[in-house]
Nucleic acid binder design. Structure first.
Lengths: 117, 117, 117, 117
DNA sequence: GTGGTCTAGACCACG
DNA sequence: GTGGTCTAGACCACT
């Protein structure tokens, strides 16, 4: 279901967060859909349950999912979820803009790049 | 000359790299211009000289600066480094734009975000 | 009759206890009034009968309700329970007020917060 | 420096969070003051370092402290810190108000209770 | 069987 | 020595 790459330096739990975030933002996982159990994901990836738990916990604090003890974890009802996603997306965006401007790329070039997508 | 913020989680040597990269790519520092001495920067920022050395070393490997033993470090004359940086920045930028659009953020909002920086 | 939200992390039996406590303390349920049967509540909420049973048992130990075997559960006639509840609520309240004032929040803001509920 | 009680059912990391929050909100710990190292606290309390780390991490996400890898953890410069504290205090406050109202306590009684503190 | 918490100990990058 | 991440395995409350 999920795939991770040990190399890349990125923490495993971070990779999980991004992958799940991607699945939610692209609509592959619908709201209130159940996520696979912590232990199941851990076993499938050959990873420690704590690592998966950490990812789920982080996603819950972002408002993307909610966990019900003894029941499971579910995709958040898209009110909070979308807000959180957009907030995060804007943060990444502004960061990349700062970086681009810092490299001498002009504003107009960025605007054109947006329109060409 | 340089300023760092100990907060933010970003390693100090990374911050130094980015700052110097910015100064070079924006033309504030011209080619063959001498960079301040490692010890001077370290003293001014109150950080360990090893940290500054690490930043200079990383920049040298990127081809952005070159070191002359017993003389100092200078801005590299080749423009390969800057071109590579811009290419990378544009890649990150387009990626973040795709992500933002995928979350339902509108183009206009992105353009406004650029102008507000 | 009762409604629960599977979110929020709060155990279902806890939610039941609070809801019933609320109904009793606000006078919606009068003394010696019969509570709905365990199985009925369970079926209606789609939860395990054991969960409802646990809630009723906890309330009985608090003295808020009493059970007649093979008949059902009824609101207790004694007002000790309610008094104890109010005492506890006031304790929590004053504690949160002290905390809020300690953070620099003004009295007026607290009063307004009360009125906006 | 810190003291915890195993009993009480409250998770250890939660107790740590509350204790540190208290120390900050009461002004015992000033802004940019260094918190004791994760391992040090763990050793002193006879608790696992991970547990302390969890508490520090939670406090960091709340904006109450900030951690600098390889340097230490520090009390957040009181801009974010106070905001976070007030936000949390108001949350607790409204919760206790709802609880009190649910027990049949009247608004006026709550207002009087505030003024008597 | 589920999520949540905890222990015991390890490795890493960084300063 | 510091925070950050990870493993291996355990116990608990709840459904």
């Amino acid at each position: 279901m999920f795939s991770i790459s040990i190399k890349g330096g990125l923490p495993i739990y971070e990779q999980l967060c991004r992958r799940i975030t991607e699945l939610i933002s692209t609509g592959v996982m619908q709201k209130d859909e159940k996520l696979p159990a912590v232990r199941e994901v851990a076993k499938q990836l050959g990873v420690n349950p704590n690592t998966v738990q950490k990812a789920y916990h982080a996603l819950e604090q972002q408002g993307l999912i909610y966990s019900v003890p003894a029941k499971g974890s579910y995709v958040s009802s898209s009110e909070e979820g979308v807000i959180s996603l957009r907030k995060n997306a804007m943060k990444n965006f502004t960061e990349s803009v700062k970086n681009a401007l810092g490299c001498g790329i002009e504003r107009q070039a960025l605007v054109e790049a947006i329109d060409s997508i």
